[in-house]
Amino acid sequence: MIQEISNRLLKQLENDVEQVCSQIKDPLKRLTMVLKLIREALKKLRLHVSDLKFKNKTEEIPIFKNIKPSFYQWQIYYTELYNIETNLPYGDADKQASFLEQELLFIERFFRQYAFLYQYYRLNADELDNLYFVRGAEMQSILLPEVPDLDPEFSTSCDYLFSKFRAFEALKEWVLERLLLLKKRSIDPQTLSGNLHPGEMNWTGDTIDLAEIGLGFYYTGKLNNGTAGLGEIFRWLEETFHVNIGIPAKRFAELRKRKRLSRTRYLNEMRDSLNLKMENEDEYVPTGKKKNNSAISDED
């Protein structure tokens, strides 16, 4: 029950955050609205958890090991992202690259600082879950970070740290994507030219559909002879169509979770629509008259 509820809450939160990020360009205003959405979602999750009647302590583990961190990671991620965006040197690609490389070192240093617990997280180990993810469990360790605003009814020893692991992995991906983009732009300045893009186009469909297209580009290797990164493709689509698609790994995971719908629903729809158009054009008309739905002209 709590898993279903949390899945709905998380999906709604991520959709709302995505919409805010696509519509609001001012970093501070965007962060303020995003944090408000996350706090509201966490508050709802806390209320649902407080209503649960646990048969034993181990039933708490999935909530604080997986469910809560899947929400709280975004509070950490967007706060850190705001700090990077607002401190990024303006206009100078070399200075920007140097700044981002320092951020990458900071992230890697954080993972090394909590190396044992990070390995525990990466391996999805469970031997110490009764200490790490049960409320009230006694654990004194210099390995654990200070936890801000600890709520004993909605916190355990390691749920904050696992949230931060998730957030910093997503942040690392963002930094690496920007570094790759900067390096390619410094090698080929023509990529900065606005003349490379056609007239303004806005994406008016669901962003998950555009994610399908981006993933299709990446896994078929048809952009830049297969050297274009997935994050780079997503950012290119975002800039071209003026939307926020989101984190590639998260969107890929959404497609994998589809059960009722085809995992590639939109790509299938494109294929079927194009095939239907061609089949209609191929139909034989005995009277010699042209069909109402004329063929696509070269000028279209």
Rank of each mutant, 00 (worst) to 15 (best):
I208H: 05
Q75K: 14
I24E: 10
L131S: 12
P152T: 10
I187V: 12
E127W: 09
L192D: 15
L182T: 05
S50Y: 03
Y118P: 00
I84C: 08
G229I: 00
T32P: 00
S262D: 04
K43G: 11
D188K: 12
R112V: 02
I296Y: 12
R258P: 00
K250M: 02
R256S: 03
F116L: 10
H242N: 13
L81N: 09
G288Y: 13
K55F: 06
L104I: 02
E283T: 09
T227Y: 08
K164E: 12
R271C: 00
L223K: 06
Y219K: 15
I63Y: 07
F99I: 01
K172D: 09
K164P: 00
L128Q: 10
I2N: 04
Y114V: 00
L10N: 12
L143R: 09
D272R: 09
P89I: 03
K68N: 02
N225Q: 13
L261C: 00
K172N: 13
G91C: 04
L237K: 06
E200N: 12
A125F: 03
T287D: 15
N280A: 02
H48A: 10
R8S: 11
E138K: 15
K95Q: 13
Q96A: 08
N7S: 15
K11M: 05
N87D: 11
E103A: 06
I24D: 03
D209P: 00
S297F: 08
S22I: 00
A295S: 14
S98L: 10
P198T: 07
I245W: 07
S294L: 15
P145Y: 05
L230F: 05
I208L: 12
P145L: 05
Y114E: 01
Y160E: 07
A170C: 08
K172T: 10
L10W: 05
N195W: 11
G194L: 12
K65E: 02
G288S: 12
G226M: 05
Q19R: 13
L144G: 06
I63H: 08
G246H: 06
